[in-house]
Amino acid sequence: MKRALLLALFLATLLTGAEVKIATYNVENLFDLTYSGHEYEEYIPNSSWQWNSDTYRKKLKNIARVIADIKPDIIALQEIESLQALKDLKAQIQREGHYFPYYAIATAKETTVKVALLSKHPLQTQELRVTASYQYRNIIEAKVQLGSEKLYIFVNHWKSKSGPESMRITSAKALKQRLNTLGDVNYVLLGDFNSDYIENVTFSKKRKLNNTDGITGINHILKTTAHNEAVTYDDLKGCTNCAFNLWYELPKKQRWSHKYRGRGEGLDSIIIAPKLADGKGLEYVRGSFQKFDAPYLFKKDAINRWERSRKYPKHHTGRGYSDHLPIYAEFSY
């Protein structure tokens, strides 16, 4: 009886295929408790800021709760300090009931925070170097076998808007060059691009940022716009050198994962290749893109971010999650 049931489940999988949920989450500064000299002041272990075993444990537990509630098969992470911090988070997620056997982190460059990846599927990874400068974080390139096809995943965390658009274009060009080398493959670009999905519209009048004559990394270099119009899902079927930003799957008012001065911004994105919409094999599941916005991630109208007391002496309170919301999408194979 048991063998017959297993056979039936196997045949059902063959007939209906399988799905993989891929997410991305900027966890807002997950630092470990080992002093390396690269920490931000407020994350120096056991200092007056009270970044200690107690607050570290609470941060791990809070972020693990979010990830376990999403239940992703693969999740890209930003702002992880070290391999130790990633392993500690992985262990805490397992305590929450969600297990990732495979992991990677961009450690080739000693930037203060790094991008990382947790996965239920085996990973083949390498780091894509943007430049030698420590102002630019390396990008993780991961190859995942899903059924009979390969999926390339690129985990990004581009320069913040403390720098002009030319710095984000530098990261975009390094990524686009690698995509051009790969050719017509299944790829997903995701992470914190520090660029709104309509950055070409929102930043054009900001002189501090616009040092590129209106050209943006996320829109013009990654080709999520064509002739200054957003690429649509249907456009993917007629182009090879374009990409679709999944924010357009949601109503306009919901297209944000971060707030700056009360205004929502879609700084985190999941961008897909034309091949993931060709109706063959590995495919994006239309309508599956979502922002994870559980009530506990909010305080009134604000994101319930990791909290640091403004009262002297300033310190971590042990409450809150991150200043970003996670996003995710599903793919069938």
Rank of each mutant, 00 (worst) to 15 (best):
K275S: 09
I140V: 05
K161R: 14
G17H: 13
V188A: 01
K176Q: 13
L190A: 05
G287C: 03
F203Q: 13
G214D: 04
V201E: 12
L175C: 02
A329Y: 14
I44P: 07
F100E: 04
V201G: 00
E283C: 08
K159P: 08
L117C: 06
D54W: 01
Y25F: 15
L7N: 07
S332K: 15
G279Q: 05
Y134T: 01
E307A: 09
Y136Q: 09
R319I: 02
S322A: 05
G264D: 13
I215S: 03
F10G: 09
L236V: 07
G97T: 13
F331I: 00
L7E: 11
N210L: 03
A106F: 06
S204E: 13
Y233Q: 04
E79S: 12
K299D: 10
F331T: 01
Y248H: 15
P122L: 02
Y333A: 10
E41V: 15
I70C: 09
R137Q: 06
V185W: 00
Y233C: 06
I153K: 13
A243R: 07
R129Q: 13
A108C: 06
P45N: 12
K143G: 00
I270A: 07
K223R: 15
I70H: 09
D73V: 05
D196A: 12
S166Y: 04
R57T: 12
E283G: 11
Y312G: 00
K299V: 11
L128K: 03
D32K: 03
S309W: 14
P251N: 10
R137M: 05
A4T: 08
L282T: 09
G183N: 04
P72T: 10
N46T: 03
E265M: 14
D69C: 01
A85R: 10
K206N: 14
S160Y: 10
N241M: 00
E110H: 07
I63L: 15
N219Y: 05
Y312R: 08
H315A: 10
L246N: 12
Y296M: 03
T232K: 04
N228M: 07
K59Q: 10
L86C: 09
G17K: 12
F289M: 06
G262E: 13
P101R: 02
I272A: 02
P295M: 05
K161S: 05
K159L: 04
E199K: 01
G183T: 03
P274G: 03
S195E: 15
Q254S: 14
D293T: 09
G266F: 11
F100P: 02
F292M: 10
Y312L: 06
N210H: 04
D192H: 12
R310P: 13
Q124P: 02
F100S: 06
E28N: 10
A64D: 09
K114C: 02
I169W: 09
W247E: 10
E39A: 14
T111Y: 02
L7K: 12
V20D: 06
L222S: 12
G217T: 03
